[in-house]
Design a protein around this nucleic acid. Structure first.
Lengths: 234, 234
DNA sequence: TAAATATTCAATTGATCAATTGAATATTTA
DNA sequence: TAAATATTCAATTGATCAATTGAATATTTA
């Protein structure tokens, strides 16, 4: 192999590996999942991921270095977000690949359901059909700020901690579909548990908003999140 | 955050990170690119990547552990291959994401063309149109064994080292499109250089066969490579 | 201007990973 | 069966990375 080709390849693969390195840490994968919901401050991310602010900041610097995220300073706050939609799609494909190839992950996912009674899922394709017919109620159980940054069209925002207070507003004779942050999040599972315990017909949609978007691109109920205030503003 | 949720997330992200770790090494990314062309023995991979057999084997064990590759023992040989098509698609999306986000990589790619005169590219979409019209000649300049394992439909195999011997067989009045292993490989660039130096109209298709496949799924000139002999059999 | 707050930076430490080396193992052939 | 060959394994060493700690920096407010 020619020396020039060797140099080219070494350089090219080193650049590709920047992204690989960024997603080689479980912590950073979790951060990326959080940022899939919209932009967040460092301390919000730290709280969501149970890490110190300093450690979170370090990980975010790594994500910046690999160009997967961007940030904007607003006062004393730094708001981080995914660099663009292709990053979200890449993370989704990583998740789907792992689900397909890693049996240990398959097992973890199955345990969600074996550890709980009566949690059922709905596929996105079926949800789309049902929503067109109007015989389903879709609820987003993430924090309201995330709903406001982006959500599946037609969804109602009921953050998980408010769910029990809102039971009276929900139709007892219609199926309720609950979704949250995606495949690695249990909020929607909890929601379905609560709903079913109260006699509602409820199922989980495990796909995230970004997954919805990447499969239903003609919908556009997504606004750029950088001009929205994050929950830290009080 | 609940303890149970914490445990779930830690476990899930640890599993996802297995794939991240696998692609955090430049060397392994190069190996995956080689395996995108079809199954190979350890020593062939070692030779292609300029690594020792022992080091190559170590990296391959890492790729096995993350389920991105599989192998089959045949006599004293171990033939490694990508686990399935979703792995190839994932690597392609990594490459495309990096090309989009990493300016240093963009620069490396531009230098291919600034360091050489007159290398032009053709897009896959245009190639498809041209091939339907029949006014283009497509050549695959990879090693013949790779061509035989899989290739773009309609391509003629002319390994780069044979190209000058085959000039007489090529049409001087028709555009020739050369392709090779993909975006990180320079064989097709060299081929275009040679062809143009000899007065042919030649352009480069930088997409790989796997990219072709992921965008043109109705074609099926791909046979499972595990029943084919690798170039090491003499 | 000082105090309060959010974040980054730098140093340290322990953990993890990559390359090398050479022995061990498996397969084939004469 | 011994020799040749392909590959893996295990140990070692040096390099790299993650978490912690606390100082430094930037922003805002009274």
């Amino acid at each position: 192999m020619e020396k020039e080709t060797r140099v080219f390849k070494d350089n090219v693969y080193a650049q590709l590996a920047r992204i690989g390195k960024a997603i080689s840490s479980p912590r950073r994968l979790e951060i990326l999942d959080i940022l899939m919901q919209g932009s967040k401050t460092v301390e919000t991310i730290a709280r969501e991921t149970d890490m110190s602010v300093a450690n979170t900041s370090q990980h975010l610097q790594t994500l910046l270095e690999s160009r997967l995220v961007e940030y904007e300073k607003r006062g004393v706050y730094s708001y981080y977000k995914l660099a663009d939609r292709t990053v979200a799609n890449f993370i989704i494909s990583l998740q789907l690949l792992a689900e397909k190839r890693i049996t240990e992950l398959q097992k973890l996912r199955e345990e969600i359901y074996t550890n709980r009674d009566n949690i059922e899922q709905i596929k996105m394709s079926e949800l789309i059909v049902r929503m067109k017919k109007g015989n389903v109620t879709l609820i987003d159980v993430r924090p309201k700020e995330e709903y406001e940054m982006m959500h599946i069209p037609g969804a109602n925002s009921i953050p998980i901690e408010d769910l029990e207070k809102h039971l009276a507003t929900l139709p007892i004779n219609q199926e309720i579909v609950a979704y949250c942050r995606g495949r690695c999040c249990l909020l929607s599972v909890e929601a379905v548990e609560i709903l079913r315990a109260h006699g509602f017909k409820a199922v989980r949609l495990e796909a995230s908003v970004q997954e919805w978007l990447s499969q239903n691109d003609e919908y556009s109920n997504v606004h750029d999140c950088c001009n929205k205030k994050n929950s830290n503003i009080s």
